[in-house]
Amino acid sequence: MPKRLQVAKTFKMYVDGKFPRSESGRSFDLRAGDRLLAHACLASRKDLRDAVEAARKAHEKWADATPYLRGQILYRVAEMLEGKRRELADLLAPPPPGRGVRRGSPLRPDAEVTASIDRLIAYAGWADKYAQVLGCQNPAAGPYYNFTIPEPTGVVAAIAPDAPALLALVSLIAPVIVSGNTCVALASRANPLPACAFAEACASGDLPPGVLNILTGDRAELLPHVADHRDVDAVHAAALPPRDAALLRAGAAQNVKRVTVRDAVDWSDARQCHSPWWIEPFVEFKTIWHPSSV
């Protein structure tokens, strides 16, 4: 009896709720030694622009969704991830020693999947709470109702580090979308495959099209275009080389983008990463005054 040939998966990007290849037709190889794991899409500048357009289009409705609904959708995505544990762990598993894709994550694959799911659950819970922690009523010296509320900044780019390929991506995305922003994420260059599987969980988890878009490709190539894009309102990145961070900030100055680059993150530290202070950089504080008088 011949051994059954495994059906290999095609890994694609996630834009506007669909799974396209790069419009450029480009790809890059991911190999474990001699074995081909996948041809990952090599996103172009045009792909980035398409993704930003999808994110902009989705923004108003997502921002207007009730916090309860956003929380439930994030929770649903976590449920979907739970069902993909094995696939994700396999995609995160290191290739045979001395060969192929380097992972560079201190976490074991199954621990990374667990932490990623738990992170989504934590942020699902924040959806209808962060506004109470970050907002407030202000005791102005006069007959006014005066309060400050957080509102989403808009379209946020998330630039994931090479590792941990899944947990860092989820940790950069979740605080962005929980508050009503829409997101264009660039996956780990070293191992983008878990991001592609995560995108499938998002699609089947009822995340509306365009709320999250995931590109795979070359960070060095796309970063200048992210920095320059006038319709990107903020950037959430981690572990960028100083030169890349400077390039990003210089480009961001053109339209006063809000840029957060995190250094030395312990991704498994829940106290650090499950925090309203990770949501805060991607909200704008609006202060509303109204006189109280007859």
Binding site: N146, K286, I288
Partner: peptide, 24 residues
């Protein structure tokens, strides 16, 4: 906008956050 004045305008107070959205 970072500050919205409803039925009033140009009110300021040290306890009231002030600042902009977008290129403000």
């Amino acid at each position: 906008a970072g500050v919205v004045w409803c039925n009033t305008y140009n009110q300021f107070d040290p306890a009231s956050p002030f600042g902009g959205y977008k290129e403000s």
